[in-house]
Design a protein around this nucleic acid. Structure first.
Length: 240
DNA sequence: CGTGCGATTATCT
DNA sequence: GATAATCGCACGC
């Protein structure tokens, strides 16, 4: 079994370690059992000064206090009045840098994950959908508000991050605009800080920042420029 | 102190 | 595709 992620791994700039989280595993153990997820998609948030970051303002609120903690802190936040999302805090302490865990593949504890994801009488989702999306990943993993602020570097922590069993080839890593985040001037592609494993079925579908509908407004906004050089910006997981 | 809108998802048309 | 569900926070008055 690969060794645990080191503090120095997370102490680097977020843009440096975020793509390297791909292929890593995150495990959460509770009395109900252990679920292990292989990370297939992340987003980098640079913290103070990054308009998309909860740390943009530079000062912690009750919600974002853990985001300003030391590398290795887990930042679990509540959004849309109903969902939780999880970040691994990194960079310099107090920088507010973090990587959002957007999607992964459940590789252990799949029954427990299905149990957690099955809502009501509904059938549990397909295996590949168990952790396909940041809020779904958190549910499968069994994380909640009680895990906000814990250190994943602590040997006694219920949450453990490990290096990939088999490293991801660099040319299999793709990048593109962050989901649901608009950059300056509404251009999300100003921050192509979403990273995923090319062709992996558990990568979440890309959707441009959802503009809330207001009265009879302006016509359809400008399409997102597809043109991101290199192997960026292509997303075969996109819905039509 | 009110209002608008998110680092979303399930469900309906 | 569109929309409801519904909490925390920034911002405007």
């Amino acid at each position: 079994m690969p060794r645990r992620i080191s503090r120095s791994f997370l102490a680097r700039e977020v843009l440096q370690f975020a793509p390297e989280l791909l292929g890593c595993t995150i495990a959460h153990t509770t009395s109900a059992g252990t679920v292990v997820i292989r990370i297939t998609e992340v987003e980098a948030y640079a913290g103070v000064g990054d308009p998309g970051s909860h740390a943009f303002r530079g000062r912690p609120t009750a919600r974002t206090r853990s985001l300003f903690g030391p590398p290795g802190t887990l930042y679990v936040y509540f959004t849309y009045g109903m969902h939780y999302c999880a970040n691994v805090v990194g960079g310099r302490r107090g920088s507010g840098g973090a990587a959002l865990l957007r999607a992964g593949e459940v590789i252990e504890g799949i029954d427990l994950a299905k149990e957690r994801r099955a809502s009501g009488a509904r059938r549990p989702p397909a295996d590949r959908d168990l952790a396909r999306g940041p809020a779904r990943l958190v549910v499968s993993l069994g994380l909640g508000r009680e895990n906000d602020g814990i250190s994943i570097l602590d040997p006694d922590s219920p949450v453990v991050l490990r290096y990939p069993a088999t490293p991801i080839p660099p040319d299999a890593i793709r990048s593109g605009p962050r989901v649901g985040v608009a950059g300056p001037g509404g251009d999300a592609s100003a921050y192509p800080w979403r990273f995923w494993i090319d062709g992996d079925p558990t990568v979440s579908p890309y959707r441009p920042a959802a503009r809330r509908r207001r009265g009879a407004g302006s016509p359809t906004g400008p399409g997102l420029g597809q043109a991101v050089p290199g192997r960026s910006g292509t997303d075969d997981s996109r819905h039509t």
